[in-house]
């Protein structure tokens, strides 16, 4: 009996020790989160990270939404202060992962709201970076731009699954189409194979843009212009060493581009029939296709509009 009592006492004592140990560990860990938050408040984000990161690996904090939330902010602030960029910017990736984990684990209402806004900020930072890269476009950066936009899309949809991002994807494709077209117009030295690849990329982006937004005037017009200008560029490439056979072949290629250009130009014109740039485009296209009567018809319309002004 007494031996049994000793066993029970030993068991209870061991249980109490485990409980005390667990409580003190939790309290210690809670303190680490608070201290990391304090360091962050003082702008010491690196120290905050060094303090909290090892703690998060321990099992005590694997299920603490608050701890991951604070870690998310630390990564986000480090991302901002380090001026990171690129689709694989580590602090930004880590910030997103921490906030998403925090949300999965559960947060208070205010933390939940802050986490959503932080994710929204990070999401937009991907978008802004993608647009920035389009603005300073260089040949070969398309994959990075698309990857940044895809990150933005994925994050936006995680925040709002019903959001329609089609128009923005269409815009991005239109911008990319135009960036490639501008590169074609530039004096940037390149081989004819590169020129062809840039041209095909421009056309591909414009067509992708039209898939999600078929009624976009600027895309239709720019697609038509890019096709037409490429035809003219090929025509200008003919020189004194071009054989008669090559001349005929090049002319066939140019005419094919002019013919392809006609449909989007007509579509743009149908949307804004009084717009001079499309009337001029149609006049020029029909002229290039040796369709004099049609060309004259658009010329007369332009003169009429200018006369009315």
């Amino acid at each position: 009996m007494s031996a049994m009592n000793i066993d029970i006492r030993s068991f209870l004592l061991a249980g109490m020790l485990v409980l005390v140990a667990a409580c003190s560990s939790s309290a210690w860990s809670q303190g680490e989160v608070q201290r990391a938050a304090d360091l962050g408040r003082a702008g010491k984000w690196t120290e905050a990270k060094q303090l909290l990161e090892p703690v998060l690996i321990s099992s005590n904090y694997q299920s603490s939404g608050r701890a991951w939330f604070v870690m998310g902010f630390i990564h986000k602030e480090l991302h901002k202060s380090q001026g990171e960029f690129g689709v694989d910017a580590p602090e930004r990736l880590a910030a997103v992962a921490c906030f998403q984990r925090a949300q999965q684990l559960g947060l208070s209402i205010s933390d939940q709201q802050m986490a959503s806004e932080a994710l929204d900020f990070l999401s937009r930072s991907y978008f802004r970076e993608a647009i920035g890269m389009v603005e300073g476009f260089t040949w070969g950066s398309t994959n990075d731009i698309i990857a940044l936009f895809s990150r933005y899309e994925a994050l936006e949809l995680s925040l709002n699954p019903n959001k329609d991002l089609g128009p923005q994807r269409s815009d991005l494709n239109r911008y990319l189409g135009q960036a490639h077209a501008m590169l074609l117009d530039s004096e940037f030295p390149r081989t004819s194979a590169e020129s062809q690849a840039i041209f095909e990329a421009a056309i591909g982006h414009y067509r992708s843009a039209l898939e999600s937004d078929p009624g976009e005037y600027a895309t239709q017009y720019n697609l038509a212009i890019t096709l037409y200008n490429e035809g003219v560029r090929k025509l200008k490439s003919i020189g004194h060493e071009t054989s008669m056979f090559e001349l005929m072949e090049i002319q066939d290629g140019c005419v094919a581009l002019f013919e392809q250009s006609l449909a989007p130009m007509q579509a743009a014109h149908a949307q804004q029939p009084g717009r001079l740039e499309t009337l001029k485009g149609l006049m020029t296209l029909h002229y290039a296709l040796s369709q004099k009567e049609e060309s004259d018809r658009y010329r007369a319309r332009i003169e009429q509009i200018l006369g009315d002004r």
């Binding site: 389009v134 603005e135 960036a179 117009d185 600027a218 720019n222 037409y228 003919i238 140019c254 290039a288």
Partner: peptide, 24 residues
Amino acid sequence: AQGQFAQSSALDESDTRSITKANF
């Protein structure tokens, strides 16, 4: 900056028929 992309591309106003005829 995005405005530059909102603008329309510029039409090449070269006289295409004359270019072809010149080559011929």
